[in-house]
């Protein structure tokens, strides 16, 4: 299928590299070089996915995301420098789905696009079945059970809740803040110790080596992500 992908990027070389990579994989490209143009094109063109550089000259990336989110649930992938964690978190909390760190490779870019596409499909299909799986790891949302390689895994209620949240957002970066809000509520604050400890416990159950995770990976300074493949 020939999805329209909007790239909002003011650097020409990066723009052309992204364009090329996308076209090579058979997508149609729409480009914008500032925030205003990005918002307009997101609205007018039939845009499926948006790639948004957070360093656009005319407006704050968060503003672009919020404005687009008012009308559309299209996946938004933001592009940002590595040492700008707070910028990424703010963008994710404003409604972005994923992020790419500069410099990134075409492989990384396409991996993110594929995740976004799957999201699109899931949005269309809604959650039809009562379960979901990622490779060997499977969750049964009706029975509230977790399986690893077809064997039932004993998880605590908190661990189950955590996994459930990840399975609802496969491939997506979940910020530490949003996970804490889901698990402990909004009033809990920003203390990450309990989450880190919970995550360590869960990893010891689902990962072969918790320091080389295959399912839930850490995005340092930002949050976690359940890898879908």
């Amino acid at each position: 299928m020939n999805q329209n992908i909007l790239t909002a990027e003011d650097d020409l070389q990066i723009q052309s590299f992204i364009d090329y990579a996308l076209k090579h994989e058979g997508y149609s490209c729409i480009t914008a070089s500032n925030g205003e143009e990005a918002i307009r094109k997101a609205r007018e063109e039939n845009t499926a996915i948006m790639i948004l550089d957070l360093g656009l000259p005319d407006m704050d990336g968060k503003e672009v995301i919020r404005t687009v989110r008012l009308e559309s649930q299209m996946p938004i992938i933001v592009v940002s420098a590595r040492d700008r964690e707070s910028e990424k978190i703010a963008a994710l909390d404003a409604g972005a789905d994923d992020y790419l760190t500069k410099p990134f490779s075409a492989t990384e870019l396409m991996a993110r696009i594929r995740v976004a596409e799957r999201h699109l499909k899931n949005q269309i299909r809604q959650e039809d079945s009562g379960g979901s799986e990622v490779r060997e790891l499977r969750i049964d949302l009706n029975k509230r059970l977790v399986y690893l390689a077809e064997k039932e895994l004993h998880v605590t209620p908190m661990e189950y809740q955590l996994l459930e949240y990840f399975f609802q957002n496969i491939g997506k970066v979940l910020t530490t803040k949003s996970i804490i809000e889901v698990l402990w509520g909004k009033g809990y604050g920003s203390d990450t110790q309990a989450l880190r400890s919970l995550m360590a416990g869960l990893r010891r159950k689902i990962e072969k080596n918790p320091a080389k995770p295959e399912y839930i990976i850490t995005e340092i300074g930002v949050g976690y992500r359940l890898l879908d493949q």
């Binding site: 070389q13 990066i14 590299f17 500069k102 410099p103 990134f104 075409a106």
Partner: peptide, 20 residues
């Protein structure tokens, strides 16, 4: 360093495509 990163993204990305 910040400014170098932007063209670097282009170089790394483009050279990867070129390689293919």
């Amino acid at each position: 360093s910040h400014d170098i990163r932007t063209p670097l993204t282009g170089i790394i990305g483009t050279s990867e495509i070129l390689l293919g």
